[in-house]
Every structure is written in structure tokens, then in C-alpha cells.
Amino acid sequence: MTLLRERLGGAAVLGIPLIWIAVFMLLPYAIIATYSFWIKQYPTFVPAFQFGNYLNLFTDPQYSKVLIRTLKVSLLVSFFAFLLGYPFAYFLAFRCRSQALRTWLYMAVIAPLWVSYLLRAYVWKTILGTEGILNSFLMSVGILSEPSDIFLYNQFAMVVTLTYIFIPFMVMPVYTSLEKIPRNLVEASADLGMRPIPTFLRITLPLSMPGVAAGFTMTFCLTFGDFVAPFLVGGPDGNLVASVIVTQFGTALNWPMGSALAIFVLVIVLAVLSLSDRVERAFSPKEA
């Protein structure tokens, strides 16, 4: 009797989330997966089972160029977020001696996440534009004689903007993994005569790899699917894959192609996730 009631309770707790996930995640993915095999036939599309849309991804330069650009921008954003985020997290975990300062600095990095993502992208448009603050500032101090358009509407602007937006996603997991490293490991290494830099390279860095992997995953995947920054600061040659998906479902009216692109993004995200799981497991301390 009690067993039955427990079973029922378990089913109730489990039921709602399971149904929700099935209806609002699995079913929608199945629908776009189906569409991705259809054929566009003006003015609509017809059901089919063929891989033409997927083939187009790699053979049609219209799409393959965008995919390569997206990959490049995502890697650059992850890399710069790492370059800026890691030393900061390291400072917080190992160098900062005041607990209050540490809390404040950590909060200061996370806080921008609570401020509208759209506005944080927009502000870079106002900073980097030809009429923007950077140009007018450089002119007023005499470095430039006329406004330059090299700052906005290119990949540089996208990388700066997206790095700015996604840095917190690198700092959070890296800091968490650095925090977990027992201090006596680093001390033991120093006692045994190892210099700080080799200690860092052979002990701290490997032990923080799970955090780095998580940070890379977040920044990479979020950049990979962004269409707001390309729209605001990317310019005509700045389309990323998500902007193309938007066009396929909008003006281009090619749902099958758009679905294939969306499925491709989904597959990339899943691949990055399982890769990062592997890295995490490889660098986790093995239980004896």
C-alpha cells in the first residue's frame, strides 16, 4: 500500500516534467528534423526523404562560408573569454587575500548578466560606429583626423561584443574549479622546489581543466547560435548561422533549409557537450 503510494507520488513528481519535455522539446525537435529532409518547391515545400539540404550546408558556398565564419568567430570568442577570464578567476581564487574584495569582484563580473543582453550588444554599436564614441574620442584627442569605419560592421566588432557579453560564462566555471583545488597541493609543489610557473602549468592548470571545458562550452555554444550581435555590429558580411536560420524561416521562406541548419546547430552543441564531458572526466581526479 505504502509502496504503491510512493510509486504514485514518484509518478506525479516525474510525470509533469516528463510530459513537458516530451511535448515542448522532443516533439518540436522531431518536427524540424522531419522538415529538414523535405524539399523546397516554390511557393511551399513538399514532404520527402533526401539529404539535399544537408549536402547544401557543405557544398553551397552561401551556407558553407557562413558555417566556417561562425565556427571561427565562436572559437575566437571562447579564446578571448578564456584569455581574459582565466587570469581573473585565478586572481580571485589564489591571489586575492581579502574575502570581501573577492566577493565584490566576483559579483562585479556576474552582475552584467542581469543587465539586458540586447543593450550590452547595442552599446558596442554606439561605441564602435563611425559616428560613435570611440571615433569621436580619437578625433578629439587628435589620434584620428577623420572618422574611421574599421571598428564597426566586421568580425572584429562581433568578437569584441560577444566576448564582452559572454565573459561571465567563462569566469564562473573556471573560478568554481580553481576554488576546489586543495591549497596544500600548490604548497607541496613549492616546498619541493618547483617554481611558480611550472607549478601552475603542471598542477593548477590541469586541475582546473573541467572548469575551462565548461567555460569553453558555454561561450562557444552561445556564440554559435547568436543572431543579435551579427545584426547589430556584424555588417553585411557578418552573418552567422543563426541569422541565416532566421532568414530561411522569414523572407527566404525555405523552411527545409532552415530546419537543416537548426538541426546542424543542435548537433554541434551536442557534440561540444559530449567533448567537454570527456575532457572533464579525463582531468578529474581518479578514485582509487
Binding site: M218, C221, L222, G225, D226, F227, V265, V269
Partner: peptide, 13 residues
């Protein structure tokens, strides 16, 4: 980690 564009598109459909 999944970009909103995929969630948006799939739920739209």
C-alpha cells in the same frame, strides 16, 4: 547551452 534560435524555431513549428 542550446542557442535560443533552435528552441524558438522548433517550438514555432
Amino acid at each position: 547551452t542550446l542557442p535560443g534560435v533552435v528552441t524558438g524555431i522548433s517550438m514555432l513549428n
